[in-house]
């Protein structure tokens, strides 16, 4: 057994990981969610501002992180739509604009009463990363003369009185790296005190904790936090709870649990091999 495990072909580990993720997907296994402190903080940040507040949603991720972040982004969109917040969408990654389009599609399909230009709107992608953030904190029109449909900001009801993003009541950033949450904290939240929450990848999440609570009002780290955020929304908005499309992150927690258990199992087995090997003088 020891020799077998010691010389185990790594492709069997690949196969076990594939099955650990695939089987729960095929069987649609899901588990209940307990809302954690961070998810509650993010939920409260969106919920506590008055209905119809100005919310800037910057989706700074691309298809490579879509699996991890899109459910979170969609949950933010649904929550803001249900609250009737005015939603200003933008993307700082070149491949991020279609991620925003998915949220606009969700609004059109699930909230037909909301109108483009009055309740929600989208800015195009702009190159420059942190420079874009820095600039729109003082001059929105200098960076975005038009919205994504090519209409002047002065002709759009929800932007005509917006001078810069200091007019926003909340910034929601869904981030997969640089430019992302760190830059929003550095150039918008810290110098101008704009309340900011973040939903970010698992890789980034631990790096964001020092910014809580003063520079960031809360952080959703990876798919688990997205599932908890969905659960928090479901508790208050029964119409969202009844929407199967709004349970995307919760559904993904099935494969997560099985794959995480596999990872822990692999670490334990790997260490058992190490200790047996050390006893035998094999290491």
């Amino acid at each position: 057994m020891y020799q077998f495990l010691k010389n185990l072909d790594r492709r069997w580990i690949f196969l076990s990981m594939l099955l650990a993720v695939a089987i729960p997907i095929l069987m649609r296994i899901a588990f209940p969610e307990v809302v954690s402190k961070q998810a509650k903080m993010v939920f409260d940040a969106v919920e506590s501002i008055p209905d119809g507040s100005n919310v800037l949603l910057s989706f700074d991720f691309d298809p490579a992180s879509e699996g991890e972040l899109l459910p979170m982004a969609q949950a933010f969109t649904r929550h803001c739509s249900a609250k009737g917040h005015k939603q200003y969408y933008m993307a700082l990654w070149p491949l991020g604009s279609p991620m925003v389009d998915k949220s606009l599609d969700t609004i059109r399909a699930e909230y037909p009463d909301l109108e483009y230009g009055i309740d929600y709107m989208k800015f195009d992608y702009k190159a420059g990363g942190e420079a874009v953030i820095r600039m729109i904190t003082t001059d929105l029109r200098g960076m975005f003369p038009l919205d994504s449909r090519g209409v002047s900001l002065d002709d759009i009801p929800m932007t005509k009185n917006i001078k810069n993003i200091q007019d926003m009541d909340l910034i929601i950033n869904v981030s997969a790296g640089d430019p992302g949450t760190k830059q929003w904290v550095q150039f918008a939240s810290t110098p101008f005190g704009i309340t900011t929450v973040s939903g970010c990848t698992g890789v980034q999440a631990p790096q964001m904790y020092p910014y809580i609570p003063k520079q960031l009002a809360g952080v959703l780290g990876a798919i688990k936090a997205a599932a908890e955020y969905e659960a928090a929304i479901d508790e208050v908005y029964p119409e969202i709870a009844a929407n199967p499309k709004a349970q995307e992150a919760k559904r993904r927690m099935g494969p997560q649990l099985v794959a995480h258990s596999l990872m822990v199992g692999l670490i334990i087995i790997g260490n058992c091999i190490y200790y047996v090997g050390r006893k035998r003088g094999d290491v």
């Binding site: 990981m17 992180s65 879509e66 890789v203 631990p206 993904r252 494969p255 794959a259």
Partner: peptide, 16 residues
């Protein structure tokens, strides 16, 4: 731990 969680989520999305 968080990184693993993220990578598995990406794989789950592709398998879906």
């Amino acid at each position: 731990g968080y990184t693993v969680m993220g990578r598995i989520a990406l794989l789950a999305a592709r398998l879906e």
